[in-house]
Computed example of a mutant assay.
Amino acid sequence: PWGGAGLSGFASGRARIGEAWLIADHRHHHSIVAGGGHAGWTLHELLDHYNRRLLGSLADGMRGGCFPLMLKIIATSDSLSVQVHPDDATAERLGELDVGKTEMWYVLRASPNSKLICGLQPAVTRADLSEAIESGLREAIEPMLSAFSVAEGATVLVPAGTVHAIGADLVLAEIQQNSNVTYRLYDWGRKRSLHKAQAFEAIHFGLAHPGPNRPLGYPQRDGTCTVLAACRYFAAEHLAVNGVCPRETGGRSFHILLLKSGMLRLADGEGTWEQPLPEGRAVLVPGEQDEYVLMGGGECLIYYVPDLAKDIVGPLRAAGHSEEAIDALC
């Protein structure tokens, strides 16, 4: 009911699409390799065959031997439901097949009035929210939610247990734990089912959400890397390239690349292969690839499982960022 026109290019004949799962290894959808020697393989088959060579030394597969992260593009014409995702412990306690779900949004496109909801107002208690949800009244529920305006480039980390909703007229890149568990609290008068009991089990009351992240950058050869968000599940970076920009994985984790703008080519560090970074598709660099190179002029988003000390804190300290700013980002 809320899908937008921003993803119409992903499926012919469909004007409105809500989500495109670009990297997914889930019982509801498996990504398929588009080209090369493994064309036609699913991501799950790749992981089953290559395991650590695909994941890297640090990243771990999940329950059922699945890939740990999922990358989506979300396009909205209307607001999504007010909802919450459980953390790992709560998902297990409630008998879910999936793990919990911490996620991060990066705004690719926004209208002048676009908003995101993330968190409850600090004074809201379990009893307050329960009474408002039971009333079903928008005027009772909306004042309890923490909403803020966003523009292109805004980044928001959404820890599991955080009440949230994506507003209308947005296109987002969403990186998340590999989970599809959502508990709806309120659906703006639409008649879909709600999951009030599970939602109240999952909500982390008393934790104020800080709002959009304050990314921190540092220079790289022929480029600038900006750390958008980092947690134990994933790191997200924006890389602006103008020339030949080498990137190191250290063999610790796969890297997921998503072109944002411009024209970039991807090559290995030894010069044995090279390919364009395609528009509208994600590229997965295996963890065993110690180094790769991005060439050209453009911007991309990069996601991976971080060693927080080596991949995030060290480079940001070296660039002169304060401990306070780094702590706020991690």
Rank of each mutant, 00 (worst) to 15 (best):
G217L: 00
L46C: 10
C245A: 08
S81N: 04
R52K: 15
A229W: 05
E324R: 07
V313L: 04
L71Q: 12
S114A: 13
K310R: 11
S322I: 07
L54G: 04
L54K: 05
V99A: 13
V150T: 03
A154L: 06
E279C: 13
T182N: 07
I133V: 13
R27F: 02
A127P: 03
E96P: 09
R52W: 04
V99G: 12
R317C: 13
A318Q: 08
A110G: 03
L294K: 02
Q83L: 02
L43W: 13
V293G: 02
R317Y: 01
E103T: 07
L294V: 09
R126H: 14
T102A: 05
K310P: 02
R252Y: 05
G223H: 01
L69S: 08
P278E: 08
N51G: 07
A91Y: 07
S57W: 00
G65C: 03
W273F: 09
H204E: 12
G56T: 11
L137Q: 12
A229V: 05
L172R: 03
L108F: 01
G161Q: 09
K260G: 04
L157I: 01
L157K: 06
H28D: 04
D25Q: 10
W41R: 10
S8M: 14
V158F: 13
A39S: 14
E299Y: 00
C225F: 00
I117E: 03
G211V: 14
S77N: 14
V293T: 12
K196H: 05
E324W: 09
G167Y: 05
I117R: 11
